[in-house]
Structure formats: structure tokens, C-alpha cells
Computed example of a mutant assay.
Amino acid sequence: MSIKKENTVKLISAEGFEFVIDRQAAMVSNTIKNMLSSSGSFTETELGEVKFPEISTPILEKLCQYFYYKLRYSNTTNVNNIPEFKIEPDIALELLMAANFLDA
């Protein structure tokens, strides 16, 4: 099964690490959604990639995990069946700031 490029988005961390994720998962972030769907010929819209020079690789990786988590459980009716999204204490503050920036 091949994945079409238009169905994925490339998110690039400060260190240059590239995360290729489903476009639908990336759209959990309102900031990314706005970047990818803005009219005009912006690099993000044309290439389907977004660079985050201020977000480190471990934080962006955790955010990608959260996007899939949110996508998976956002319409679940029984809240008792939703597993906890674990966040390591040593990255909590940096993750919170990045999530706030991404409106996720």
C-alpha cells in the first residue's frame, strides 16, 4: 500500500529531523491547519511541509504522537475507555509551550 504525498505532511524539527504524518493527524493542530490551507503560494501549502526552528525533535515527536492520540479518541463516547496520554515530567513545560503555539 503506497501513501500518496497529498495525504501526508512533513513536519521538520529544529534539528532538521523530519516526521511524515497523516495530513488528517496534522490538522489536529489549528496552527498547522492554517499553514497548510492558506491561500497563496506559501512553501507550506505547496510542499506540504512545515519547519519548526523553535521545536526540538523530542518535543515534535511527542506532539505527533498526541495528534494521532487526539484523532483516535476525540469522538469516543465512553471516556472510561480512553487511555492516559503519558507525558514525561522533564519535557512537560517545553511540550506545553509548543502545544500552545500549535493550538493543539
Rank of each mutant, 00 (worst) to 15 (best):
Q65K: 10
E61Y: 02
S2Q: 08
D90H: 03
T76Q: 08
I91R: 03
L93V: 12
N100H: 07
Q24T: 10
K10N: 13
Y68K: 08
G40P: 09
N30M: 13
P53E: 14
A92P: 02
N80F: 01
N80K: 09
E54W: 05
L36Q: 05
L63C: 15
T45G: 10
E6F: 10
E54V: 05
M97A: 12
K10T: 06
K4C: 08
S2T: 10
V28S: 12
F42N: 14
E44H: 06
F52R: 13
Y68W: 10
T31Q: 06
L63R: 07
F52Q: 15
E46N: 10
I91W: 03
E61F: 00
L71P: 00
S37D: 09
S29I: 05
T77Y: 00
S56V: 05
Q65A: 07
S39P: 05
T77C: 06
A92Y: 02
K86M: 11
E49F: 07
R23S: 06
S38W: 02
A92N: 05
I12V: 14
A25F: 11
M97H: 02
I82T: 09
T57S: 14
T31N: 06
S29P: 03
L63M: 06
K33F: 13
L95Q: 09
A104F: 03
F52T: 14
S13Y: 06
G40I: 08
S74A: 07
M97I: 12
I3F: 01
E46V: 04
I32F: 02
Q24F: 05
P83C: 08
E84P: 00
E88I: 00
L47N: 15
N7L: 04
S2W: 00
E54M: 12
A14L: 09
S2N: 09
G48T: 07
T8M: 12
S39K: 08
K70Q: 15
A25I: 04
I59W: 08
L96T: 09
L11A: 01
M97D: 10
G48S: 04
S41F: 04
T8R: 11
S74D: 08
E49Q: 14
F67A: 14
L63A: 13
E94Y: 01
A25H: 13
E54L: 11
A98V: 02
F67K: 11
G16N: 10
A104C: 15
S56L: 13
S29A: 12
S13H: 04
L71E: 11
I59D: 07
V28W: 05
G16K: 03
Y69Q: 10
N81Y: 02
S13F: 00
S38D: 07
M97C: 09
N81S: 11
L11I: 02
M1D: 13
L71D: 13
I55T: 14
E49Y: 04
D103S: 10
L96E: 12
E18T: 14
G16A: 11
K86H: 12
M1A: 11
V28Y: 03
M35L: 14
F42R: 12
T31I: 04
V28P: 01
K70V: 01
K86F: 05
